[in-house]
Simulated assay, not measured.
Amino acid sequence: MRRPARLGRARATDAPAIAAILSDWTDETQWIARIHSREAELAFVRDLVARGWVTVARREGRVVGFLAQNADEVVALHVAAGARGQGVGAALLCRARRGRARLALWTYQFNTPARAFYERHGFVEVARTGGAGNDAKLPDIRYEWRRRR
């Protein structure tokens, strides 16, 4: 059995590992085209980390997942391929919800595993678009989670 991941604030030195998780997901996902270089993704991640928005999940000292959050908005949530299905994403999402009355995020309509994950964790679809507002120009879905009273 795998040890639980340890969660903590991302450090600047984590940026390459975080960017690799993001880039690897892009490379392994057949329905999305690569529109940003790995270098651009690293710059994007460095900015998120510098803003203090990123929580990482570590296992044996290695980053195995991350969640970027700006207030009530989840900007990104990705887990390394070898750590998926082991509670890493759930732990990151649970941490993001702490002290919040609501959270919101966007995901692609084609991303059925992410959609199922968010719905399992209490997120509800509130809108759909044709993708005009995202870089990939792919249809997306807006999800929201609200704390039960």
Rank of each mutant, 00 (worst) to 15 (best):
C94F: 07
A90T: 10
R58Q: 05
R51V: 02
R62W: 00
A68W: 06
E60L: 11
V45F: 07
V79T: 14
V45W: 08
E73Q: 10
G52A: 11
V54E: 02
R59D: 11
R62F: 04
E39K: 11
A96K: 00
E39P: 09
W53T: 13
V45H: 10
V54M: 04
R46H: 11
A57P: 04
Q86S: 15
R58M: 03
R58C: 09
H78T: 01
R34V: 15
I35M: 05
R95A: 15
A68C: 10
C94S: 15
G85I: 13
Q86E: 15
H36T: 03
A50C: 00
G61I: 11
A71K: 06
G87C: 10
V74N: 08
R38A: 15
W53F: 14
L77A: 11
R34F: 14
A71N: 08
R59A: 08
A68E: 04
L77M: 13
G65E: 06
R62H: 04
E60H: 14
V79S: 11
L42M: 08
R58K: 05
G85P: 15
V49N: 06
E39M: 08
R46T: 14
D72I: 02
V56H: 02
G82K: 05
I35N: 09
V79E: 06
W53A: 13
A96C: 03
A50Y: 02
V45T: 15
E60Q: 09
D47G: 14
A71W: 09
L48T: 01
A91R: 13
L48M: 13
R62S: 11
S37V: 14
A57Q: 03
R58V: 01
A43M: 14
A68R: 03
A57F: 00
R46C: 14
G52C: 12
L93F: 04
V49K: 03
G82I: 06
S37L: 10
Q69D: 06
